[in-house]
Lab assay of single mutants.
Amino acid sequence: AIERGSKVKILRKESYWYGDVGTVASIDKSGIIYPVIVRFNKVNYNGFSGSAGGLNTNNFAEHELEVV
């Protein structure tokens, strides 16, 4: 089962992080479509409006993740 702290591989082909491994930061139990927040070591794009980097978290559905 996917739980907080799990290392997961991203299976969503259109994702910037496809094939990468991230760490589960949290799981939303409220029934939303993409409840699993995954944190990565790298950012997906340069930040804007003065922020240092881009996003390094993204929401995924459990079926888009594979525990490694």
Rank of each mutant, 00 (worst) to 15 (best):
K9T: 04
N59P: 08
E14C: 15
L55K: 08
S51E: 14
N56R: 10
R39Q: 10
I27T: 03
E62N: 07
V43N: 10
L11T: 03
R12H: 02
I33A: 14
V21T: 08
Y18K: 01
V21E: 04
F60A: 01
E64A: 02
D28F: 05
D28V: 06
G50Y: 07
E64H: 02
A25Q: 14
G19V: 06
G31T: 09
S49C: 15
I10N: 01
N46V: 07
E66N: 03
S49K: 06
I10H: 02
S51D: 14
S49N: 10
G54T: 08
A61D: 04
G22W: 05
E14P: 05
Y45L: 15
E66Y: 07
P35G: 13
F40N: 00
D28C: 12
G19M: 10
I33S: 13
V38E: 00
G53V: 10
I33T: 10
A52Q: 12
S49Q: 11
V38K: 00
F48E: 15
V24I: 04
G5R: 02
V21W: 06
G54D: 08
L55E: 13
V8G: 00
G53P: 11
L55F: 12
R39C: 15
I2Q: 01
D28W: 05
G31P: 05
S26D: 13
G47T: 07
V68M: 10
V43I: 12
I27F: 08
N46E: 15
V8A: 01
G47N: 08
A61H: 04
S6D: 09
K13A: 08
I10D: 01
V8Q: 01
L55P: 07
F60Q: 00
I10L: 03
G47V: 05
I37T: 14
V24M: 01
L65I: 05
V67E: 04
G5M: 03
S30V: 05
F40V: 02
V67Q: 05
F48T: 14
F48C: 15
V67L: 12
V68R: 03
V68F: 06
E14H: 07
N46T: 08
Y16K: 05
S6F: 13
N44H: 13
I2T: 02
V21R: 03
H63V: 09
R12M: 04
G50A: 10
V21N: 02
E64T: 02
N59H: 09
G47Y: 06
Y34F: 10
V38F: 01
Y16D: 05
K13Y: 08
I33P: 14
Y16M: 07
V36H: 00
V67N: 05
I37S: 09
S15P: 01
I10E: 00
G22P: 01
I32L: 11
G31E: 13
Y16C: 09
N56W: 12
I32T: 13
I10Q: 01
L55D: 10
N56S: 09
Y34G: 05
K9F: 05
N59C: 15
E64W: 04
I37V: 14
G53N: 09
K13E: 06
G5V: 02
V38Y: 00
E3T: 14
I37L: 14
V67I: 11
V8H: 01
A1E: 09
K13P: 08
E64Y: 03
I2R: 01
F60R: 00
R4C: 15
D28S: 09
N41P: 07
L11M: 06
V8Y: 00
F60C: 03
E64C: 05
F48V: 14
K29W: 10
V43S: 08
E14S: 14
V24D: 00
K13V: 13
N44K: 14
H63C: 14
S15D: 06
R4M: 09
A25L: 15
H63T: 08
G47W: 06
H63G: 04
A25F: 10
K29V: 11
S51N: 11
L55G: 09
K13H: 06
G31L: 12
G50V: 06
V68S: 03
Y34N: 11
G5E: 02
S6K: 07
I37F: 09
S30Y: 06
D28T: 04
K29L: 11
N58C: 15
L65D: 02
S51K: 06
P35D: 09
R12A: 04
S26I: 06
I2C: 13
I33Y: 08
N58R: 07
S30Q: 06
L11H: 04
K42P: 06
S26W: 14
V38C: 04
V8R: 03
F40A: 00
G19Q: 08
E66K: 08
N44T: 06
D28H: 04
S51F: 09
G53R: 04
P35F: 15
G31S: 13
G53K: 05
H63Y: 11
E64D: 03
N58L: 07
L65C: 04
G19W: 05
S49T: 12
E64N: 02
K29A: 08
K13G: 04
I10G: 01
